[in-house]
Amino acid sequence: MRFVLRRLLLFVVALLAISVAVFAMLRVLPGDVAAVMAGVNSPPERVAQLRAELGLDRPLAVQYLDWCANLLHGDLGASMLTGRSVSEQVGVRASITFPLITLGLLVALVIGIPLGCAATLARGHRARAAYRLVSIVGGAIPALWSGMLLILLFGRGVGLIGVLPSQGFPAAGWGAPVQALTSLVLPALSVGIIVGAGLMRYTRSALGELAASGYIEMAMSCGMTRTQAVRQVGLRLAMPQMVSVVGLTFAEMITGVMVIENLFALPGLGTGLVTDVGNRDLIAVQGELFMLAAFFLLIGLLVDLAHRALDPRLKASIGGNEVSA
């Protein structure tokens, strides 16, 4: 219980720190919101007027508290360019990005865990080297390139087996569920392959450590075959660690899919953030950065709590606060 309280406290403190950091960062950078909004060659009076309208002439502390108060209401301000609410924009974009990374993670799990097990079980020099090569090459492919190769293979109209759409998201959004889902298949595959190679490495090293620690031999001396021991004992023992890794991978994928979203012209969070940075839409960038950072912190919190709940060995150890592995 003490651990949970302490972890929650750390979460709140980190969230506050992030909000200050994001707020300060975009104030310190040259060219404030008003100057950008007014344009390059506008007269100083116009900029000053805009500044007053936006409340930028007030003390920074007041501005910060104002921003925080709005945050609590879920109001991230309005985009300078489109005038639309930033929180609404984030919501629409997240409805594409989250299904995409969930699908990608599924692909990665389906590829990574069995291959990781197989790599642990592999006997013989050649087989081991082959598995190692697969994991290294899989992790070395640029996301841009894997996406392109998949388009060349399966892209509708261009691919060798052109069956799947390779560009854009249906205008109706999730109103057309079949089209929406099929437009996510190729992007999810291309990110899943790369993430899967990473998961394969984690699975292998986690299982390898367990095998070295004697659990697997113990199970085998009780009559299990090596394969059974790795699958039933090893995987279960590695579970808490794997849950952590999968959780953190999920968080990382939000920024990891930026390139893929761009390549496949999906209007997700990544594409949106890149566009807003390009347009110097500071209000939108500030809101989006805060949302993303808060999300990373939240996943970190959940992962730590889940790890703790899943692994009774941690509670037994004294103190047990070294969880952020």
Binding site: A17, T255, M258, V274, V277, L282, V285, L289, F296, L297
Partner: peptide, 19 residues
């Protein structure tokens, strides 16, 4: 270090690219 490590490099790059 634990707090900063969770910030993805892409985000840092995007923020730096603004100025």
């Amino acid at each position: 270090v634990d707090a900063l490590i969770s910030i993805p490099t892409v985000l840092i790059a995007l923020v730096l690219a603004v100025p």
